[in-house]
């Protein structure tokens, strides 16, 4: 049973067809990199998976549970699927530690001691154990993004969605964030990431999805696809990026 199974997902924004029937299958422990030009629908697909966007047609099931796309209460879904954003979206009025502790304490109703340990554990996992009491505006972009990853991990999701998580970072800070993600991948975390980091997609991903004009244009083994793109669109995309 795949963790994420999407068949024929369609999405329109008004008269604009953003997704024109997308199929996606993600097994537990897989690291899937989604690439494509801007406007190809990759971020929309990611946001549909955890219910930030609705979809107009198709079948979507997460961890064996069929989604209609019309549910009022998406919280059970969100407990399974964590998300990290391009703009970090840390809560600016809370310290790094409080950012991580908030949801486990309020949503999962864990004890203060348990959430404290959880926050220390996840923050040290992203290499920021010493920043527990720092506010987001006292941290660099790379550190903020790592706190955001720790915050998502503290909810113990089955899969982590990463929406261009290094695109807003200064180039010298990209590495520290990708290192964290790579470690998560090595530990067997299921990752679905929209990314522009082609080398990362090739070296860390188990599967590459190339989206083009609202469809999955090519998919397969990353090394294979980068070395021998089957379609001219992917070939021109990879050569434009590299």
């Amino acid at each position: 049973m795949p963790l994420v199974l999407a068949e024929g997902i369609q999405k329109n924004f008004g008269s604009l067809e953003v997704l024109k029937g997308v199929d996606l299958r993600v097994e537990e422990g897989e690291v899937v990199a989604i690439i494509g030009r801007s406007g190809s629908g990759k971020s929309t697909l990611l946001r549909i998976i955890n219910g930030l966007e609705t979809f107009d047609a198709g079948i979507l099931s997460i961890d064996g549970e069929r989604r209609t796309g019309l549910e009022k209460d998406l919280r059970p879904l969100r407990l399974k699927v964590g998300m990290v954003f391009q703009q970090f979206n840390l809560f600016p009025h809370l310290t790094a530690g409080e950012n991580v502790m908030l949801a486990p304490r309020e949503v999962k109703k864990l004890s203060q001691r348990a959430v404290r340990e959880l926050a220390e554990e996840t923050l040290s996992k992203v290499g920021l154990a010493d920043k527990f009491k720092a506010y987001p505006d006292q941290l660099s972009g790379g550190q903020q993004q790592r706190v955001a990853i720790a915050r998502a991990l503290a909810m113990r999701p089955k899969a982590l969605l990463c929406d261009e998580i290094t695109s807003a970072l200064d180039p010298e800070l990209v590495g520290e964030v990708l290192d964290v993600v790579q470690r998560l991948a090595a530990e067997g975390m299921t990752l679905i990431m929209v990314t522009h980091e082609m080398r990362f997609a090739r070296n860390v991903g188990n599967k590459l999805i190339f989206m083009h004009q609202g469809k999955v244009h090519e998919e397969g083994d990353p090394r294979e696809l980068f070395a021998h793109p089957k379609t001219p669109e992917l070939a021109s995309f990879t050569s434009a990026i590299q």
Partner: peptide, 27 residues
């Protein structure tokens, strides 16, 4: 309050009341 704050709270499985109380109203 920026949309990202609402979405981040949603993605942490907060209820709308929790989102207001801990994230939106303090800001």
């Amino acid at each position: 309050i920026p949309k990202g704050q609402w979405e981040a709270s949603d993605c942490l499985a907060m209820s709308s009341l929790q989102r207001m109380r801990f994230v939106i109203l303090p800001q």
